[in-house]
Amino acid sequence: MTKNEIKSLHEQYLNKLRKEKRIVRFVQMLIFILFFGLWELASQQRWMDPLIFSSPTKIWELFIQKSVDGSLAANIGITVTETILGFLAGTILGTLLAALLWWSPILSKILDPFLVILNAMPKVALGPILIVAIGANMTSIVAMGTLVSVIITTIVVFTSFKEVDPNYTKVLQIFGATRTQSFKEAILPASFPTIISTLKVNVGLSWVGVIVGEFLTSSRGLGYMIIYGFQVFDFTLVFLSLLVIAVFATIMYQLVDLLEKKLIQD
């Protein structure tokens, strides 16, 4: 086969890839447009109750109105801050707890059944107790965002600590390394990919915790907008909040994904 023939075959292959990508993008756009188009149409033609299901144009108008008066940005700011704090606290606390369990095998044996119970328990059910204990403020919402992610982080990261090839620690022990040194030089860096991937799960979990927390207590934030819209039967407000949450949760997830690719490229 000549060079030119190979080149043209390669060209064909690339064309096939491009074509496939175009089809995927086209269908994705189609689904997006159909979804909002049908929604709008169904609402205007009264196929479904516009009072309950609102419509994209009404949501858009409300979006413009709330953007102009600045209240949307303020609410987004609060919820996103709470989520980031909850997610960072959950990840860091979970990793520290995992380090403690690794440090003391006897402690990990003692705590094992309690971790299982705490993990199985629906953490949002603790909401009312948190509010009574900490107070109806931002701290208890952040605590909620932390609580939903901390136990699962502990369990996942601890498992990855235990699964690090013992020969790495053996190499260090022969050099006379202390347990702290073994942790710092082998256990933690070897588990880094697992820790980063728990970040991705924790982003989602923290959103759950924070929104439920706002349902229960807050007078600000996106979760509050949902519950307020529900109470005054303004479902345009509910849908606006839902769409904004979808957008910001996706952005956060993508950022963590980007971070993961950056940190684990080698």
Binding site: V171, Q173, P189
Partner: peptide, 19 residues
């Protein structure tokens, strides 16, 4: 005593730290 570094030990595989 391991802390004195009197002993060197080479394992079956190199176990170089990949990071």
């Amino acid at each position: 005593k391991t802390s004195q570094n009197d002993i060197g030990y080479m394992l079956q595989q190199d176990y170089l730290f990949p990071w």
